[in-house]
Design a protein around this nucleic acid. Sequence first.
DNA 1: ACTCCCCCCTGTTAGC
DNA 2: TGCTAACAGGGGGGAG
Length: 325
Amino acid sequence: MPELPEVETVREGLERHVVGRTVASAAVLNARAVRRDLAGSEGFAAAMAGRTFLRAERRGKYLWFPLGDGVTQPGRVARQDGPPSPGETPPAHLPPGRDSPPGRDSPPEAPQEALLAHLGMSGQLLVGDPDRPLSPHVRARFTFADDGPDLRFTDQRTFGHLMVTQLADPDDHARAVPAPIRHIAPDPLEDAFDPKDFAARLARKKTQVKRALLDQSLVSGIGNIYADEALWRAKLHWARPADTLARAEVSRLLAAVREVLTEALKAGGTSFDALYVNVNGESGYFDRSLNAYGRAGEPCGRCAAPISRASFMNRSSYFCPRCQR
DNA sequence: ACTCCCCCCTGTTAGC
DNA sequence: TGCTAACAGGGGGGAG
């Protein structure tokens, strides 16, 4: 997991607590955390030192942070220190540079490099007092030039990773994404998501509908929990061949996906334990709203039939055997 | 070109 | 009580 709502919760936290700040030093405590960075631990740490986090972006379950060099230029990407003066409207958290300033002659200082992060199954990006004790699962640590809170990449199972990478040149109208994730499709909550394209590609899939939902190159951000929840809402069986779905069923499914992701995001994500937390270490509470996932044997909220659990890709699928034929 | 499966890890829990 | 096996929210890479 963390799936889209949890990752977005983390992104928002980092936008508030890290964007605009300049890294003093980076340390890799476990080389596996940067295994996909060809520069290795030392190269990664060197590439991060002195860089400024310019923005916090996300696609699906991936996060990235375009990097600037050195000290933030005055007037650009101004860090919002201190409380806003009374009566002043706090500036909206629009990513600088996206729709400001208009025109195509914007200064050629568009960031080319970014820190790319994936949380895997158990990754966390935690911001806190730099003097707090170092937990055994901290894989990388960043301190900042302002001596404020530090940033720690914590990951029990080490399926997550960090890397410094180039931002790929955007095609026309596309936004720049890191080169290693060009194969990741837009997620259902971003502007670039095209419902018609999704429907067309889904209809061509020679596989079960749940496998298709989990295919990050078809649609990103959905994992095992929200796939089951969306299928339950859409009253579709997880093993249904994707290419047999009627148009109306595809529409229902997409609407269900969007609903469940949006509602979970509002609740701060799903967590059953301390493994899934926001940047301050707090848990979301969407688990109270789950209708299918993890509820084997409990009554379906619609028809009261007991929820079933089936083995699926070395994991589990939870579904209502009566509502989801 | 597509689909599927294994595997990378550590920790917790269910079952014997 | 203690051991073992199953399972956990993901996805890259290679086999077929």
